[in-house]
């Protein structure tokens, strides 16, 4: 048990550094999509929710488990779909912030 907690702590500390480093330079244009994207990633609680519901017995535990799985599913699908919709808007255009050449007039609708 003690080995597990130390292992998890190691993973935790390293993840803090990775999390900080990996998004060091983000243009303000992308702050909203990035927030939404990280929002989708913590939807990973869905696997915890499934595990909990899987090991539930009795109505109270099962009800709580069902709530957890439902909420986590909302988090996952909502997070990724919203992020994709935001980014869809960017990818229609030239995605680089400072495109040197004049972009051709994008087709209407």
């Amino acid at each position: 048990m003690n080995i597990d907690i130390i292992g998890l702590l190691t993973v935790f500390v390293l993840s803090v550094f990775v999390g900080y480093e990996v998004i060091s330079k983000v243009p303000s244009t992308l702050h909203t999509p990035l927030m939404s994207g990280t929002n989708a990633v913590h939807g990973i609680i869905i696997i915890g929710s499934i595990d909990i519901l899987s090991s539930s017995h009795g109505p109270v535990q099962i009800a709580l488990g069902v709530i957890a799985v439902f909420l986590a599913t909302l988090n996952v699908v909502g997070g990724f779909v919203v992020t994709d919709r935001m980014l869809e808007m960017f990818s229609v255009k030239k995605p680089s912030v400072k495109s040197v050449e004049k972009t051709e007039e994008s087709p209407k609708q």
């Binding site: 597990d4 907690i5 292992g7 998890l8 993973v11 935790f12 993840s15 803090v16 550094f17 990775v18 999390g19 900080y20 990996v22 998004i23 060091s24 983000v26 702050h31 990035l34 927030m35 990280t38 929002n39 990633v41 913590h42 990973i44 609680i45 696997i47 915890g48 595990d51 909990i52």
Partner: peptide, 23 residues
Amino acid sequence: GFALNNTLLVVAGTLVGASGTLL
């Protein structure tokens, strides 16, 4: 993730926690 002893929950949750704080 710590409570369930699940490494992936710890990694993903911490990634969001850290990058979210920076953001």
